[in-house]
Design a protein around this nucleic acid. Structure first.
Lengths: 346, 346
DNA sequence: GCCCTAAATGTTATCGTTAACGCCTTTCCG
DNA sequence: CGGAAAGGCGTTAACGATAACATTTAGGGC
């Protein structure tokens, strides 16, 4: 079965081994090698072993460019994201990467510098040019939705995370529910109403949290204080906190994320207001630092990694199952009560 | 110049346009189209315009798989990283992504689940299989160094970030200097010595910070307290802080990152020690939250994004310039003094 | 004008894989 | 035991771009 020994030399040639080399060494055709790699059952155990051995000996690895040229699949998923420095997006990205790896796909990331339609369109275009097999969008700016969709070629499956785009499957955490839990928790503690430091208005998460907060207040017939606007940063929370401390009427503050809550805590502390004795403060996200703030922060825990994983599951279903876009899924968050909230001083 | 009209139909066929289609429409050969795209100056303005117009009309885009098959370059850089949920790595990754995008490359990310040699080797292998043109390693675990290097095919340029691997160009922040600045700052405030909550021993950053701290203490002839070990998390800082609070002798604590510093602050607060009146605390990293902790944290600012950018610059030099590995570069960090440190109570 | 050289363009081969199809064995049944 | 059906492999042709070489065109000096 073995051919002329001279052909078998495993001499380190400059070029990497290709299928033909493996085939020659194993005494079969390159097509058989391909079959061993793609549908092992279709080749007899005997020859399969020989081929596998040859592959091992030569240290052969398939050329992915050649594969994707002919199969029209790159085994790569594209992720469009905005600020992966924030804890939430970073965690979701992490979940995505792990899930993607498990599925045998690679991840190509396009990070938006600014959340503009133009940047988004370019990013999608770049990923599509790389012929990714699917796309995950973690760019929670609602305003960009249309741009994305317009730029999308119809045949690439897409899943949006934390962003309901028309006609695109999405995975998200129930922001409205989370905000409700927070607000109701504070009302239950006896607070007359709850002030809110919201996130940027072009983020869908921020809007969802506002909605939940509003709904809870209205259902309980409470006055709705004017909302303060932050940009997710501790600094913006600090500025908002200063305003709240100045007017002195707030006894309960719901910040739309933990970083802003930290800023609020800082501002209140500087103004001489005690938390939770004078003012209760709640955050959102449950970043690892939340439990160690002063005081430990009551917040809402979001299963970021699970969201990332889930988005990949859905995406792969669409890609491999060829199914029509599956149902969007919404994951519930959980309220984590710590020491930054207490019943209102009477 | 224009051929048979029937051939020109821009009818939406199922398949995407290829170079040949553009060529036909422009009345040139596919090779001329290729030239227009790759070396525009080599084709006459007149024909170039025609080709460009045809490209526009057809919405033509080059097939990257075909390109990389023949050029043996994928225009993709691979990044191996460990925990991108941490602020530092996330920021560097961000810098890398932006710089890579600017250079017209794509980024493929392989995220290590655990910092083991096996996982690292697999990750590198996966990226190499995708035929990335270069590799950035943001995996500061020294123990894995050998594994990486062994798994590396000799011909893929590599740059390591925050990790000095033998024979690999690296970019890093001067951790030793940063730790020195911290320690000297505290000694200058009159503290007898400085306690240290270090990071995991397999992280090179953690070791660098220990070295700087030790050096500063020794140069000043101070006693070296036993170091406490954390894992970068606020929780581990909290545990360390409890120990420090218990023995009551510490007046100055240098935590190896801001999250652990937060934990230390929390533990001291619970133990009734005031910061900075009773104990001074310093962190490292200058995360955006540091300025809003209670009290605002004195820390060391690291130019993470710049490190990321720089690593790409170097990598691209090696790839495109074909240069031998350039000099490794070390970037100095800066001490940021806030309110968590003060002169020792006398 | 003619020839020579350089610039502009075209032709053909090639990258390394999978798809499509065909041939030769087996195998199994009547 | 003949023949059909299936299984196992081989041969050849894509895939869509660039490389290498061949050819045509343009320009300039005499």
């Amino acid at each position: 079965m073995v051919k002329d020994p001279s052909e078998l030399s495993v001499a380190k040639s400059r070029r990497l081994p290709v299928m033909g080399d493996v085939a020659r060494l194993a005494g079969v055709s390159h097509m058989t090698v391909s079959r061993v790699l793609n549908e092992p059952e279709s080749v007899r155990p005997n020859t399969r072993e020989r081929v596998l051995l040859a592959i091992e000996q030569l240290g052969y690895r398939r050329n992915s460019a050649a594969r994707s040229l002919v199969t029209r699949r790159s085994q790569t998923l594209g992720v469009v994201c905005f600020d992966t420095t924030l804890y939430g997006p970073a965690s979701m990205l992490n979940g995505i990467e792990h899930a993607t790896e498990d599925a045998g796909y690679a991840v190509s990331v396009a990070s938006l510098r600014r959340p503009t339609a133009e940047a988004a369109t370019q990013a999608v275009q770049r990923l599509v040019d790389q012929s990714v097999d699917g796309l995950v969008l973690i760019a929670p700016q609602a305003a960009e939705a249309m741009a994305f969709v317009r730029a999308l070629p119809t045949d690439v499956p897409v899943v949006a995370v934390e962003n309901a785009l028309p006609n695109v499957t999405s995975v998200s955490v129930d922001q409205v529910l989370g905000a409700r839990l927070v607000t109701e928790h504070l009302l239950a503690l006896g607070h007359e109403t709850v002030h809110h430091v919201r996130g940027p208005s072009d983020w869908s998460e921020a809007n969802g949290r506002v909605d939940g907060w509003l709904a809870a207040l209205e259902e309980n017939g409470r006055a709705v204080p004017r909302e303060l606007v932050g940009d997710w940063s501790a600094k913006s929370g600090y500025v908002a906190g200063q305003k709240l401390a100045r007017d002195r009427r707030a006894t309960a503050v719901f910040a739309a994320n933990d970083s802003m809550a930290l800023g609020v805590l800082r501002a209140l502390h500087e103004a001489g207001a005690r938390v939770p004795e004078d003012v209760s403060v709640v955050g959102f996200d449950d970043i690892p630092e939340a439990a160690f703030m002063t005081p430990p922060l009551t917040t809402v825990s979001q299963p970021f990694r699970d969201v990332g994983r889930r988005s990949i599951e859905i995406l792969l279903d669409e890609i491999e199952g060829g199914e029509e876009r599956g149902a969007s899924s919404v994951i519930p968050p959980e309220l984590v009560i710590r020491n930054s909230t207490s019943s209102r001083r009477t």
